[in-house]
Amino acid sequence: MYEPIRSKSVHSTMAGNASGLPHRSREEELDIQLAGHLAALLAVTDELRALAPSADLDTAAERIAGQVARLRGGHAPVRASRAAGDRVRDPAALHQRAHTLAGRALVVAASRADTAAAILAAERMDAHTAALAGREHLSAAR
């Protein structure tokens, strides 16, 4: 019914020797993914710091930057400058974005059993949930 394959696969000849391809372990891939989520969380945290500076956000930003540097082998993450905060942004939307990013970081940190990053991500989720709840409470009181 079907004609048999008469030639070698194109994929095996194009790829050449499979051992010659770059390969990363699952742990390395998870490190890269976690560092990316935390770096994005850091960027949003820096935006929030520019809108409404606070000691809590300053501390959180430093802790996040420390985790990103650890995951990237000591390379410090790129940080947003205070001047970048000149754009008018909705703080509630930033808190929601930060909460989402912290949740993603928590999932990856849990899957790679990184307790320090998981605790930090969970703390940030709680902080952004509280910030969102406080804003809803204030807008309902008006």
Rank of each mutant, 00 (worst) to 15 (best):
M1E: 00
E3N: 05
E3T: 08
E3I: 05
P4K: 08
P4V: 06
K8F: 07
K8G: 05
K8V: 12
S12I: 14
T13I: 04
M14L: 15
N17L: 12
A18T: 13
S19A: 14
S19F: 06
L21E: 11
P22Q: 08
H23D: 08
R24A: 12
R24I: 12
R24E: 07
S25D: 06
S25L: 04
E27M: 09
E28Y: 04
E28P: 02
E28T: 11
E29L: 09
D31H: 12
I32G: 01
G36T: 08
H37P: 01
A40L: 15
L42C: 02
A43N: 06
T45P: 02
T45I: 06
E47A: 15
A50Y: 11
A50C: 12
A50Q: 08
A52G: 03
P53S: 08
D56C: 03
D56F: 03
L57S: 02
D58I: 02
D58S: 15
D58K: 10
T59S: 11
A60C: 08
A60M: 12
A61R: 14
A61T: 12
I64D: 00
A65P: 00
A65N: 08
Q67V: 04
V68A: 03
A69M: 06
L71G: 07
L71D: 11
R72Q: 14
R72C: 04
G73I: 14
H75R: 14
H75C: 06
A76E: 15
A76D: 13
A76V: 11
V78K: 14
V78R: 13
A80C: 08
A80I: 04
S81H: 09
R82F: 06
A84G: 13
A84P: 02
G85P: 11
G85S: 08
R87M: 13
R87Y: 07
R87A: 14
D90K: 10
P91Q: 05
A92G: 09
A93S: 12
H95L: 02
A98D: 00
L101H: 05
L101Y: 02
L101S: 02
A102E: 01
G103Y: 06
G103M: 04
A105G: 15
A105E: 01
L106K: 02
L106Q: 12
V107H: 04
V108H: 01
V108P: 01
A110F: 04
A110H: 10
A110M: 03
S111E: 15
R112C: 07
T115Y: 04
A116P: 00
A117Q: 04
I119P: 01
L120I: 06
A122V: 02
E123Q: 01
R124D: 03
R124W: 01
M125F: 02
D126M: 11
A127E: 05
T129L: 11
T129G: 05
A130Q: 13
A131I: 10
L132Y: 00
L132E: 01
A133E: 08
R135E: 14
E136F: 04
E136Y: 07
H137V: 00
L138A: 10
S139M: 09
A141S: 14
R142M: 05
